[in-house]
């Protein structure tokens, strides 16, 4: 166990958190290695934010053990706080101050000062491309700018572990892609361990090395995006071949787990990894003189995995989400 403390940025064992009689987090266990991007994926109300708040020492767990950066969140919260940066789901900036002042305040509270602090502020503001806007009051920032400023602030004191709670909730697709770039960049350039929560599947898939799928306060699956998707079945490659004759599957026998001939000269090949199998399949077709008119593949998505495990879908931009997004963006602007 002691060795784990050094190896893992986050160790959670049997975490329980209740609000009155409601159990928000019900015996969750997982580990996150240093340098990893780990995601909690699940629908709203699954217990993601509660977990982040416990990990960030803002909520007291009712059961289990939580180590962050090797320190116990209950016994040594200050030790944990020194090693982490947090971007909360709801805005937590002082909107009556400028972007620069928000970072200055943060730096001083974290014990930075003088020239070093100035350098760090400039570095981080340039990192999120807000340097030009540094002297504007935050209340005049757009939703995306505020999120970026929060990311810059969370990184200012050089934390080893960064928590991001729904980092792109309520943002438009373009801004979202922007934020994803920053998250990839900060991992690549700063080697920060990232723990993020999201209910967007593409987000988890685009950013995370490993994902835990959480529902009703429990982790129902855990693994890399690839591993998880394999749970929902294999990839399928579809080919359309000119003048395909019965028995055409014979050509691809050794390249696919299963082959099925479909009407209209189409063939479906079940494979382990479509991205790797497709070039080989096309090469084989050319060798045998087959004229491939169309090629495509289908991969099971994380949504298929969630559907398989719970019988429900992780709701994506349903009517409620739209309303929430509108409300959120209003709150950001205030």
């Amino acid at each position: 166990m002691d060795a784990d403390q050094d190896r893992f940025a986050i160790v959670v064992e049997g975490l329980v958190k209740r609000y009155g009689r409601i159990v928000a987090v019900d015996g969750v266990s997982f580990r996150v290695g240093y340098g990893e991007v780990f995601g909690f994926l699940g629908p709203n109300g699954a217990g993601k934010t509660t977990t982040i708040h416990v990990l960030a020492t803002l909520l007291r767990p009712d059961g289990g053990r939580v180590l962050v950066a090797g320190r116990d969140v209950v016994r040594d919260p200050v030790g944990v706080r020194r090693s982490i940066g947090v971007v909360f789901q709801d805005p937590s900036l002082d909107s009556e101050l400028t972007g620069y002042e928000n970072l200055y305040l943060h730096g001083r509270i974290y014990g930075l000062r003088g020239g070093l602090l100035k350098e760090r502020i400039e570095e981080m503001l340039r990192f999120v491309e807000l340097w030009e806007h540094r002297d504007r009051l935050v209340k005049y920032y757009s939703g995306g700018m505020r999120r970026r400023l929060e990311i810059a602030r969370a990184l200012l004191h050089g934390p080893r572990i960064l928590f991001l709670d729904e980092p792109t909730l309520g943002l438009d697709p373009q801004t979202r892609a922007h934020i994803w770039d920053y998250i990839r960049k900060l991992r690549r350039e700063m080697g920060v361990t990232v723990f993020l929560t999201t209910h967007y599947m593409e987000e988890a898939e685009a950013l995370c090395d490993r994902i835990a799928i959480i529902d009703h306060g429990e982790i129902i699956a855990e693994g890399s995006p690839e591993e998880l998707k394999h749970m929902a079945g294999n990839d399928i490659v579809y080919l359309k071949i000119r003048g395909a004759k019965p028995g055409i599957c014979g050509f691809f026998e050794d390249l696919a787990i299963e082959c099925r001939e479909l009407p209209g000269g189409r063939v479906a090949l079940k494979v382990e990894d479509a991205v790797k199998a497709l070039p080989r399949i096309l090469l084989r077709a050319r060798d045998r003189g087959l004229d491939v008119l169309e090629a495509s593949y289908h991969r099971p998505s994380l949504n298929d995995v969630f559907l398989l495990l719970t019988g429900r879908e992780i709701r994506e931009e349903g009517p409620m989400d739209m309303i929430k997004a509108v409300v959120m963006s209003r709150r950001w602007r205030r």
Binding site: T57, D90, P91, S92
Partner: peptide, 14 residues
């Protein structure tokens, strides 16, 4: 209400 309190609570300063 506006969340700034969280920023202070999560800081290591006493």
């Amino acid at each position: 209400q506006f969340g700034f309190l969280k920023e202070v609570l999560v800081a290591p300063a006493p």
